[in-house]
Amino acid sequence: MTKVLVLYYSSYGHIEAMAQAVAEGARDAGADVAIKRVPELVPDPVAEKAGYKRDQSADIATVPELADYDAIIFGTPTRFGNMASQMKNFLDQCGGLWFEDKLVGKVGSVFTSTGSQHGGQESTILSFHTVLLHLGMVVVGLPYTYKGQGRMDEITGGSPYGASTLADDGNGGDRQPSSNELDGARFQGRHVTEIARALASARLREAA
């Protein structure tokens, strides 16, 4: 069975909700799925004052376990057009995995959230892809076969680079992921699983 890790960081719960949808899609495609998060770097008093969602149920991931999965789907909010420092700090500890080629050939994919339509969704995912390519991963996005990307009747996240959501309602208030954005996340989870399974099957045929 294809093993998929959904690895995320979420300050306010938007990426957490997207991660659950990604995992649903991967499970629908027959994957054995784990949902985990990276450690928080912000001190507890600061996080509490800022209103961070601190009751997230996902276990904290360890760097060595990344090598145990066929695919890893990463979720991060954007921070000025790049991934959150919590996620980058975690990935910066992957030097040993890189040195031993432990992630080469595994599937990597990314989803994100921003506060606005033009808040860096695409640049966050594209800059994240650079890290995955250095690790030797096979980068997979959200293809246009997910037709929700073409919707013009509502404001929505989503790009060919990966699923995304908008976290601000435009008036400084909270906006949770829409049904279309969650459907995109599920599609991405299924798509990544199918690609990872196909790659594994190809390797088995070559080895036979």
Rank of each mutant, 00 (worst) to 15 (best):
R54K: 15
A185N: 03
G172N: 06
P39M: 08
K36N: 04
A26N: 03
G120P: 04
S116E: 12
A29T: 08
L41I: 08
A200V: 00
V131S: 15
L132D: 07
R186I: 04
Q93H: 06
L204K: 14
L5R: 07
G115N: 09
A58N: 12
L199E: 08
V140Q: 02
T78S: 15
F128A: 15
F90C: 02
V33K: 08
Q176G: 09
I125D: 10
I15W: 12
T124H: 10
V22W: 09
E24W: 04
A200T: 07
T112E: 07
Q93N: 11
Y161P: 02
I155G: 09
A34Y: 00
V140S: 01
N89Q: 14
T165H: 13
E206K: 15
R186Q: 11
Q86P: 00
G189I: 07
A185M: 04
Y12M: 08
D169M: 11
P160C: 11
Q93S: 04
S85C: 00
V192N: 03
G25N: 02
G105I: 03
P77M: 09
E40Y: 03
L166I: 15
S113P: 02
E122P: 01
V46W: 01
L103F: 07
I15N: 15
P177L: 14
A31G: 03
A167F: 07
A21H: 07
G115K: 04
I195A: 03
F187D: 02
R37G: 03
L103V: 07
S85W: 10
G75W: 05
G158S: 09
F111E: 10
A23Q: 06
S178G: 14
A19S: 15
E154F: 08
T156A: 14
L199S: 03
A58K: 14
